[in-house]
């Protein structure tokens, strides 16, 4: 592998990580969705680059799926949901941007510490890819717990899943069927989430998950 190939792979994975950080502090919903779409597009580029470098053309299928489904279909659907719910102007953040970003940086450091020492039987590319992917996954999890809105939580989950795909394609020899089934399971998860968001909305007139907790507390005090 030439150093140029390595650098481009590095750049694309790094780009995903930067976009993850961007997701983390973005408090407007529509902007969040746009950043997420951008991350998915960068993901598809990264996967396509891996397909080219590894000479594994079936990865192109993964790249196309990622581009179409996660770059356009899911963000578009989320956009519609947000408009239909009338929450497109909402701003939400549980913890301030500063602490969240600091935590995120800590998580990135942790994933580098974890993956970098692995030297046996792994190429440098796969190793760095894995470090980036782990960081993206942890940031997605962090996003899920710092948000209150159901829609942005879904975005956190989807971005976590982007990290998974990045990790999967970085490893050589991942069978196509695994990737396709992962893509489908994401679609199904997305539709389930969408239905739930509307159900929550119907019941509580809000998609703020705090309402669910209030309801549960009432139940538990009743018992």
């Amino acid at each position: 592998m030439t150093s140029l190939q390595f650098d481009i792979a590095h750049l694309l994975a790094g780009g995903m990580l930067v976009l993850s950080l961007l997701l983390l502090y973005q408090d407007r919903i529509l902007a969040t969705l746009n950043v997420f779409a951008l991350q998915a597009i960068v993901l598809s580029l990264a996967v396509a680059w891996q397909a080219y470098v590894q000479g594994a053309m079936h990865l192109m299928v993964t790249a196309v799926i990622a581009l179409v489904v996660k770059g356009f279909v899911i963000p578009g659907a989320l956009n519609r949901i947000v408009y239909r719910l009338g929450i497109h102007r909402e701003i939400e953040q549980v913890i301030g941007a500063g602490p969240t970003m600091l935590t995120g940086l800590g998580l990135i450091a942790l994933s580098i510490l974890l993956v970098m020492p692995v030297k046996v039987g792994v190429t440098a590319l796969a190793r760095e890819d894995l470090a980036f992917a782990l960081a993206v996954i942890l940031l997605g999890l962090l996003m899920m717990i710092t948000r209150r809105n159901a829609v942005t939580q879904i975005v956190g989950f989807m971005s976590l899943e982007n990290g998974l795909i990045l990790a999967a394609t970085g490893a050589k020899g991942m069978p196509l069927v695994v990737e396709i089934s992962v893509a489908f399971s994401i679609l199904i998860a997305f539709s389930v989430f969408g239905i739930f968001v509307f159900r929550i909305r119907e019941r509580f007139d809000t998609v703020d998950l705090g309402a669910l907790d209030r309801f549960r507390r009432e139940r538990s005090t009743l018992q």
């Binding site: 549980v94 942790l110 994933s111 974890l114 669910l212 907790d213």
Partner: peptide, 24 residues
């Protein structure tokens, strides 16, 4: 038994982080 969903997620997340730190 009576935590909020976010707290549960935080618990899972914290457990994961602790385990990763242990591994590191």
């Amino acid at each position: 038994q009576f935590l909020t969903i976010r707290r549960y997620l935080t618990l899972v997340f914290a457990a994961l982080i602790v385990l990763l730190i242990v591994v590191a």
